[in-house]
Amino acid sequence: MNFSLARASLIAEADMVGIAGERAVCDPRGVLYFPDLRLLAVSDLHLEKGSSFARRGALIPPYDTGATLLRLQAVIADYQPAIVISLGDSFHDGGGAERMHQSFRERLEALMAGRDWFWVAGNHDPEAPADLPGDTVRELAIGSLLFRHEPSKVRVEGEISGHLHPCARIVQRGRSVRRRCFAGDGGRMIMPAFGAYTGSLNVLDRAYAGLFRLETLMAYMLGAERIFAISRSMLRPG
């Protein structure tokens, strides 16, 4: 099939990681794809963050939802997943789905059509998004994997989560580079935030304390065209 050929060429061996025995592609655009499951995971879309700010008087451009959907459209077109999991904080607040411009809603629904779509509940959006298809779940177990929004305090092998918006920073030759990243230790993985207006928090921040096996922790930093796997010893706080 044509599209599977296209998919195969996307899957560079260098960007493959193992999580609890499952193989996944860390896509430099910030999504995780499991080829064997035809499953795409994306986290922290924070749709309608712009309008959420506008409600409080900060009139930042209302184009974040459009920008985020456009990028999501691109990865879905490339991988053609059968299952999509949005790992929580899909909307910046509970009223987000309702406020969404009709044209964006239509685009989102077109993306959802023909695949299984799961909205994992997040702290920003604990309820199911208004009038949108898809199943809203607290967490989701598939094979040896467990998808949830916040990483659990008690270690669960195979857990894929978001919430913390990880980024990593290195210093080379006196210059500092900070990028969003996937953070994983082979057993669990925290995904970068995907939304256009989402900031990020360094993986060395105390918010991550106790979550990883430090000796195997890697930050998969997002490059323009590839992932850069950086071990903990190279990482800097801040």
Partner: peptide
């Protein structure tokens, strides 16, 4: 750690 909450000017610039 407020980074997660606020929106940086760079991100707004890119989108706008």
């Amino acid at each position: 750690s407020g980074r997660q909450v606020t929106v940086s000017a760079d991100l707004i610039y890119d989108v706008l």
